[in-house]
Design a protein around this nucleic acid. Structure first.
Lengths: 106, 106
DNA sequence: TATATATGGTTTGTGACACAGACCAGTTTG
DNA sequence: CAAACTGGTCTGTGTCACAAACCATATATA
């Protein structure tokens, strides 16, 4: 099966998922954000957001720090260096691909 | 649950899927393509490609014409007008979103 | 005539995933 | 004490991407 000329090999599907892309985008902008802030910004449910964060954490794209605000638990997320690199790469690859889609029509 | 400011509502997930995005991109460029040509170009397996085409067809984004080349079956795919519009919209929405991701870092 | 091999796909099985709702632990308020 | 809020995690469910198996037909080959 010869590989086609128009593959998307460089696309990181972990980031490609819209929900996670939003999270990555926010974290890239704000440097650190707590769980509820992310929930408000993204509009995701707690469960969904929690799962996405866990996935990004497992991949090493973000760090999750569990701490306390007074006596109340507080989860703080940050983009890791690896995450920052992956995010940059994703945008570059995507940009590259999207340029190709602008081919003249037949 | 108040909606966040950074949603991706305009993103058509049917098109967002990389495999289908490639198919749409090809069809947008070539005007018509048969099954095996698409398979070669995309590098997808038959089954996978078949499923993706069915999905695009169900949504009305492409038309599938089953005909014969001599005595051998031949499936020809074309982007429908709706598909062309949706594809254009997708690219525009995506461009818009990606611009927002370029926010200055904290 | 058997049989192998290619063409052009569709159907089926499976594992991963997105999503929301139920649940839980601790805290503050009445 | 009870109710309600905060800050999350765990669980169940439906959907999906993917490849392998299968099917129907056509052509080559021995």
């Amino acid at each position: 099966m010869s590989r086609g000329g128009l593959t998307i090999e460089g696309i990181d599907r972990l980031i490609h998922e819209p929900a996670r892309l939003i999270v990555m985008t926010i974290l890239n902008a704000v440097e650190s954000a707590d769980f509820l802030y992310l929930q408000r910004e993204t509009g995701l449910t707690k469960g969904n957001l929690s799962a996405h964060l866990a996935k990004l954490d497992a991949e090493g794209y973000i760090t999750i720090e569990k701490t306390y605000k007074g006596k109340i638990p507080l989860t703080i997320c940050r983009l890791s260096e690896a995450g920052r690199i992956a995010f940059g790469r994703y945008r570059a690859e995507w940009e590259k691909f999207m340029k190709k889609t602008r081919l003249k029509r037949a």
